[in-house]
């Protein structure tokens, strides 16, 4: 199998890349290529041109001040190997280690995954739970988009046609905070049938001060599980309150069924994976 014919560009500056996208509405951005190229080989996507970001300086790497900033072209293996992440946001390295297989992690990128917005991607849910901000550059300049406003629908984000995702900025929460991600993965593809990310913060009195819970794999796009969050805030995190929040988690979600799993089964999995991931995040918050 090979893709349709297309023109290939490998610009060396972001301005040049934005210009190429602005000039050709049929052009697509190529990052690690591990979502786009398989789609093109199956002729599910047939762009007229690819704009490869590989030669643009400054899109790779991880830096930290108050927050952690990850360049869009940073690969999963670079996330796995990052001492900075292991020290400050270990959940990011953990999730990266569970994406695809070793070869996919060699080339697949964080920015590519978020811009592609596969409905079963792991990092979309994690970025929602972490409250990350996405930086995008286009012909109108640079803007910051909160993760909550970034993932719009299946394979659709808030990025404009000539905008390029350049970085992700993740706040590093202070105090007693626990972060976790778990998925029930499809045994063949490894994609999440249901994946849930949770970031729980405890107050001085030990009750849940804030909760961000996000679900992937079971709806057109990753989304916050508002019902689970509401059930946790203000509560002591006991096995009972966590079980109740997990039971509430499917509420308000647009859960879909497909060849792999019915909507009913996925809804059940949300409660099971939800309980496990909330237990893990709560244990990590307690320290």
């Amino acid at each position: 199998m090979f893709p349709n014919q297309f023109a290939y560009h490998r610009p060396s500056t972001l301005e040049e890349a934005v210009g190429l996208l602005a000039a050709d509405p049929d052009a697509k951005v190529l990052a690690g290529g591990h979502s786009l190229l398989p789609a093109m080989k199956l002729r599910l996507a047939a762009p007229g041109a690819l704009v490869d970001l590989a030669s643009i300086e400054g899109l790779r790497g991880i830096s930290a001040d108050g927050a952690v900033t990850i360049g869009a072209m940073t690969t999963y293996n670079q996330l796995v190997d990052s001492d900075e992440l292991r020290a400050r946001l270990p959940v990011v390295a953990e999730v990266a280690a569970g994406v695809g297989d070793p070869q996919v992690r060699s080339l697949g990128t964080l920015g590519g995954s978020l811009a592609h917005n596969d409905p079963a991607a792991d990092f979309t849910a994690l970025m929602l739970a972490l409250g990350a901000d996405v930086t995008a550059v286009g012909s109108q300049g640079e803007r910051t988009i909160p993760a909550d406003e970034f993932f719009l629908d299946i394979l659709t984000t808030a990025l404009g046609p000539d905008e390029i995702l350049t970085a992700v900025r993740i706040p590093v929460p202070a105090g007693r905070v626990g972060m976790a991600y778990q998925k029930h993965e499809h045994p063949a593809s490894g994609y999440a049938v249901v994946g849930i990310a949770a970031v729980l913060a405890l107050g001085d009195d030990g009750t849940c001060r804030s909760a961000r819970v996000a679900v992937t794999g079971c709806a057109p796009t990753a989304t916050r599980a508002a019902a689970a969050e509401a059930a946790l805030v203000g509560q002591a995190l006991t096995p009972e309150t966590i079980a109740a929040a997990a039971q509430a988690a499917p509420g308000g979600l647009e859960i879909t069924g497909d060849l792999y799993a019915s909507a009913e089964y996925r809804s059940h999995l949300v409660t099971v994976v939800g309980r496990r991931v909330l237990e893990q995040a709560a244990a990590r918050a307690r320290g």
């Binding site: 199998m1 290939y8 490998r10 190529l30 290529g33 591990h34 190229l37 398989p38 080989k41 199956l42 690819l50 490869d52 590989a54 690969t75 293996n77 297989d101 070793p102 070869q103 996919v104 060699s106 080339l107 063949a188």
Partner: peptide, 27 residues
């Protein structure tokens, strides 16, 4: 498989293990 599942096309690219069915020659 030609769909980046089976790994029979694995090579090293700039020292990284990759599936060469999911890399363009121009890359």
């Amino acid at each position: 498989c030609d769909t980046s599942q089976c790994g029979s096309c694995v090579v090293e690219l700039n020292g990284a293990s990759v599936k060469s069915c999911t890399v363009l020659a121009v890359q």
